[in-house]
Amino acid sequence: MRESAAERHDRLLALVRESGAARVAELADRLGVSPVTARRDVEALASKGLLDRVHGQVSWPERNASPGGAGARRPGEGLILGLLAPSATYYFAEVIRGAHEAAAKAGARLILRISDYRPEEDRVRAEGLLAAGAEGVLVAPGWRGPEDRSAYGNWLAELPVPAVLLERRADPGSPLDALDRVVSDHGHGVLLALRHLLGLGHGTPLLVARGDSPTALAVRAGYTEALATLGLTAPGPVIDSVPADQDPAGFERAVRALYEAVSSGRLSAALVHNDVDAIEIVQRLAELGVKVPEDLALIAYDDEVAALADTPLTAVAPPKRQVGRHATELLVERLTERRGAPESPAEEPARRHLSLLPRLRVRSSCGAAPEVHTS
């Protein structure tokens, strides 16, 4: 597979960091690229402040400002952090953005690898981050279900550097359960949605959800827990949602099941995971004569594109950017603790499991007056 520019940049930075300084011609030789390519890479990295360049030679940026002065060292100054995510779009785009912001604020550099939801490749990609110089890693494995977690998870606990799990939970008592992690509390998000719909006078809402990701499974589990908390019985079995472009017949079955529940009078409210499915379901229901919110009050889960629907969708919004931000801050803290006391493993602080609460953003699709947000 051809090496990407980002991967080549990672190797270049690792070489300069290791040697302290190098000539461009030497870097071209060691990278196996032309001098023109090496020079272009050096210029791109120097323009971002990641390298210092003088007369054909590059060096690692000087970061020895005196403590307490105007240029005082930031907590993570000079650190290289790795981030492994299953995707760089939709849900995880905001997680990555939050991680990048926190790394920049700490003075650290963040390098990224994407697994494309292929958990069997997670370990190799994480090793690539370490080879590129990462001193600690943020990891959102490409698991789709519990079987992936069992088959492709234990290596995480064996990493030689600090690791923080992102938006993933481990089996209680497993080696992964001893890692730091930062997650969204999807059970709380589901409960917010159900309470809102009940407060509007609807009967028990039905869940329409995917089953192909940890978030989808957490929403399903949260629905069961929320019903128990509220003392309710589901108005019917959870409707399995599938992407319309990947499985048109399965998507139509899901829409028809929801249509029949509404048209029979058994149902007047639903929670749908995720936004894209919710928008397409609303469009198809309209073609069948069911209108949102007049006939069906609907809340979407994820809040990525919910506000862009013809009828803006009320949505549960997990704190995705804050997950990335808090996880990065935690990793920087772990690495700076190591810097300060490398010889005192007995004083290692307790690991943390941090759960962040989603919010409900009220728009038109639930039939309530949309909330007005002011800055």
Score class of each variant (00 low, 15 high):
11 R>A: 12
82 G>C: 05
294 E>A: 15
180 D>M: 07
211 G>K: 03
131 A>M: 09
354 L>Q: 05
117 Y>W: 14
258 L>Y: 08
182 V>R: 06
312 P>L: 15
373 H>N: 07
356 L>R: 14
129 L>S: 04
344 S>A: 15
139 V>T: 02
306 A>F: 15
149 R>E: 06
234 A>M: 09
295 D>F: 00
53 R>C: 04
193 A>Q: 02
243 P>G: 01
114 I>C: 12
294 E>W: 05
259 Y>V: 06
230 L>K: 15
240 D>E: 15
99 A>I: 06
241 S>R: 07
246 Q>C: 11
55 H>N: 14
188 H>V: 13
167 E>I: 02
234 A>S: 14
94 E>T: 01
252 E>H: 09
351 R>G: 03
222 G>Q: 07
333 E>I: 05
118 R>V: 00
115 S>E: 04
258 L>M: 07
221 A>Q: 12
374 T>P: 00
375 S>A: 08
368 A>S: 12
3 E>G: 08
101 E>Q: 08
371 E>M: 04
220 R>C: 02
304 E>M: 14
64 N>V: 00
67 P>T: 11
123 R>I: 00
228 A>F: 05
175 P>L: 10
14 A>G: 01
150 S>G: 10
340 G>Y: 07
75 P>H: 03
230 L>P: 07
327 A>T: 05
183 V>E: 03
315 A>T: 10
94 E>V: 00
101 E>R: 12
208 V>C: 10
65 A>R: 14
215 T>H: 05
246 Q>A: 15
96 I>R: 06
183 V>L: 10
346 A>H: 13
62 E>K: 14
35 P>F: 04
115 S>T: 05
223 Y>V: 02
374 T>Y: 10
3 E>Y: 11
210 R>H: 08
276 V>G: 09
367 G>P: 06
200 L>R: 14
53 R>T: 00
244 A>H: 12
348 E>R: 09
59 S>Y: 05
251 F>S: 02
